[in-house]
Simulated assay, not measured.
Amino acid sequence: MSEVDQFDSALDLLRRLNPRETSKHLDSLISLVPSLTEDLLSSVDQPLTIARCRKTGRDYLLCDYNRDGDSYRSPWSGEFETPLGGSGPGGVDDQGNNEGAGEGAVPSERVRKMEIRANEAFDVYRELYYEGGVSSVYFWNLDDGFAGVVLLKKEVAPPSGKSQGSWDSIHVFEAVDRARTAHYKLTSTVILSLATGNDNLGEMDLSGNMTRQIESDLPVEDDTSHIANIGKLVEDMELKMRNLLQEVYFGKAKDVVGDLRSLGPLTEANREKATHQEMINSMKR
């Protein structure tokens, strides 16, 4: 089997497995076919992982866009480091010093300044909209502009331990500079996982992902305008995707579950149905 066939088969397999365990399945595929590591990591969206910046002490998110080998670049310090527990370069020695941090690609000075402002802006956005969670923004240079990714993650685990949920949103964009405007292309992916269980209903798992794309031309006066434009695009996209999830996916799931199972006794449901039919018949007379 050729490498192309192996890659297509791996993607096809991942689409048929539980999306809640995408990271586990991805690791298994990589261990089976190590030659597909880079292609799979760059093509498959998986739940984001949280690490802590050793220089600033702030949490940040790991993804393929800030990775260089086993090292990841912190958006707060701008430096590469290996997360605690990692096996690659960038560990911490006995004196607490950062050993062998990665030397991956970093944005230019201008783009890095925009990256810093974007992280500050989306940190406020995260607190207002998510009331917790972690956010990270990474920029990199393009020949005719710049590109970046906005990451947001929120996890919920009630004290009972029987319910848990997570929301991961990944917004990848390109910004191409034009005369007094910029052309933006945004690709957004939301990974949602909800699991609950009780004695009456048993266990239920709602997990999946959704991807949407938009393109837009917006006015630009200076680099600050880019941050405002990107923020508006991401905010609007998240609102649309959240409403779509709520109205279509959860609404349909509720209808299906309601038709399959009822918490009330069958005799009560039959009595209500009979009463309803009797009212309809009386109206026809």
Rank of each mutant, 00 (worst) to 15 (best):
V248H: 12
D217M: 06
L142H: 07
S135Y: 05
E235H: 14
D27H: 05
S43Q: 07
S71F: 02
T37N: 08
N270Y: 13
M283Y: 13
S262M: 07
R16G: 06
T187N: 12
G132I: 00
M210V: 15
P75M: 06
K252R: 15
L244D: 10
Y184R: 10
L201E: 08
E103T: 08
G161T: 01
A195P: 00
E103Q: 13
E120N: 13
P47N: 06
G86I: 01
K162S: 11
S77Y: 11
K252A: 15
E238S: 14
N270E: 13
A195S: 10
E127N: 09
V124Y: 04
M241L: 15
Q213Y: 02
G57L: 13
S9D: 14
R178Q: 14
W76F: 13
Y249H: 14
L128T: 04
M241D: 08
I116M: 09
S163G: 00
V172R: 14
D143N: 14
I30Q: 02
E278K: 11
I280D: 07
H183K: 12
E278Q: 15
Y60V: 00
P158Q: 02
V4C: 03
E3R: 13
R285L: 12
M1F: 11
R54V: 10
A182L: 04
E155S: 05
R126C: 08
N229G: 13
S43D: 05
L26Y: 03
Q6L: 13
D93G: 05
D93Y: 02
D93R: 04
G102H: 05
D94P: 02
G96C: 09
S188K: 08
N66L: 10
C63H: 09
E278I: 02
I30C: 04
R126G: 10
K162T: 10
N119V: 01
L128C: 00
